[in-house]
Design a binder for these strands. Structure first.
Lengths: 199, 199, 199, 199
DNA sequence: TATGAATGAGCATTCATTCAT
DNA sequence: CATGAATGAATGCTCATTCAT
């Protein structure tokens, strides 16, 4: 009888971090295939675990997806915060930001889509955190408060910046444009928009 | 002789509009619920038709969805083209454009999401037309060609404008901002960005 | 009004033999694809007629299939009867028979399968004519009556002949054997079986 | 230590025999009703299992059918091999063979149809094992090699024997003939055909 | 805690048949 | 007699989830 104990104990330990494995697999599959083309079964198989293990950690597939989204959003936010240094020269802040987005995008292909996604996946009545875009826009608003012309609503300006950046990232590769071009053009454009009027 | 004509004409199609009914229903449901929460059956029921009729017009659900997207994109493009008058005053062009987007959005709630959507719904290997965003951005590039600083790539500028506008539309209602505020702020911002440098 | 009359009249005449066209198409498709892979729609399209026309001639698909089978059986029987001349030399009768089967098979590829088929397609409770095989076997029995050893039941002998011939036809092409080989071997074999014992 | 062993063994498969149950049910229904009148659902219901279980074992209905056919063919071959003893007296070999076919047919009603069936059910381009008939014929060819007149191709002879036997089995019951009659007649017939010529 | 065989509601799609013209 | 758009019951199959081990 005792002989069993160690076996059981070690079995319990065998996957001490099954949640972490599932999160990794879920992130990989959700970004690569999207919510509807990823089955819980695919996730656990990718994680090297049994199917049932999924439901030890998540009530259902949606919960897993939301956890993935929340993690990704925090990660993106942290990533960007760590990389943007507020300087007096707005061009530099913008250029750094764009470089950071590209860096994030390279490290985590297709993840930004999920981060930015409107939760259109689910019924709108779902009381879910809104897209990360709003928060990101608010960061910009905060950062630029004093640079923004008094007649402009900072939040709207923040959204505009975020929208412009994200759209250029999305389409940038489809257009022939190099990243340097995108960064240069966008920096120039946004800087001019934000600079206090000469008059 | 004449007596034959109407008979022949009416005999041609018993319900000459089953496709039109299906298109209307599909548009309604795809925008309201999205692709994955709309069953062909829902579409035909909404259209007041039998299930089988769906497959008289479309090979499968995907084909119907793509037809919907294509129609919506053409419609959006036409709508915008008809509403934008190129003037010398760039502020007015921008403001008109924003007003037009709002008008389109009001007439077709949630449709813009579909129009703008990256075809992330399906395997990227699908040789589908890319998002309408790119085309819309190119229209802007065309329109502004002479106003854009020589150092800027017009296409990138176009994408930036489109991204800013769309993002503000999306988040505009979630933020407290009124439409007038959004239009005014964005107009001012974009105009400043696009205006030739004083120097 | 009168102008319509000739048009109508000629329309009525346009397909004076829609049944014949349907029979031809049904035969082609049933033999090529089999019952379950042939839709009434395919038959009428092949016949160059409207779908509804099918039900002007047959109550349902089964009825059409049975009509096809019956026609094919009659045709096969007639074909064989016309080609077999009873001689005193049994070898010659057998060889002629085999040649005739090959001829029929060439003129009507795959049709023999349908002719011979056990009506396994449908519930056995269906009061359908049994396979053509039995009748064919009885023809042989009739023909050979006096040649058959008294201890043998002629019907059984007939079935055995038919089974041997059909099986050799079916597998003949899959084996490397030439038709001449098959005919020669089978003729020799059957003739020996049927010949009265020397003693 | 011992206490663990049974637990592990039993844990391996909760219902270790769902495949076996499905095979049994599939065999029953495919033979009774045929491929096209048997739904996967019928099979699992007969097996006392849920619908989904079917697809745990087979990719689709065809795969299940082919597995059934292959099993049946192996079983038939094994059954026959076990029952035929090669003797010097050819009559006895033939009579044993016929008795064995009847025994198999009794134990497995209608199964022989499936075993013998030309794979006409599916597109001929399917790279499936050909009918069991050919193999069975080759067994005969092998067995009789030295008895067969030099002028005859053994494979053709094998096919002829198989065809004759199968046809008599099929029609035997429809004719009034008793099994004894069939066996006696066919034995006599085949033996005479195969016996070396007196001259 | 971990497993994976089992489940069955649900889905996209087909096709024999009808009927207004 | 001829048509073909329309139908909807029925099919093969999927997949999120459960639970005995």
């Amino acid at each position: 009888m005792d002989a069993c104990a160690p076996a059981i104990a070690s079995a319990a330990q065998r996957h001490p971090d099954s949640l972490a494995k599932i999160k990794t697999a879920a992130r990989k599959l959700f970004t690569e295939r999207g919510y509807h083309y990823t089955r819980p079964q695919d996730i656990t198989r990718t994680a090297g675990l049994g199917h049932g293990t999924f439901y030890l950690h998540y009530k259902d597939k949606r919960e897993c997806y939301f956890a993935f989204i929340d993690d990704a959003r925090v990660e993106f936010h942290t990533f960007m915060q760590a990389r943007i240094v507020r300087t007096n020269v707005i061009e530099s802040t913008i250029a750094q930001s764009l470089a950071a987005i590209y860096a994030f995008s390279d490290q985590n292909p297709r993840l930004l889509n999920a981060v930015m996604a409107d939760e259109a996946l689910f019924d709108a009545d779902d009381p879910r955190t809104s897209s990360a875009a709003r928060r990101w826009g608010m960061d910009w608003a905060e950062m630029l408060r004093q640079d923004i012309p008094a007649t402009c609503d900072p939040e709207i300006v923040g959204q505009a910046i975020v929208g412009a950046m994200y759209q250029c990232l999305l389409e940038g590769d489809r257009m022939g444009a190099s990243r340097e071009q995108v960064i240069a053009t966008l920096t120039q454009l946004l800087a001019r928009a934000l600079k206090a009027q000469p008059d």
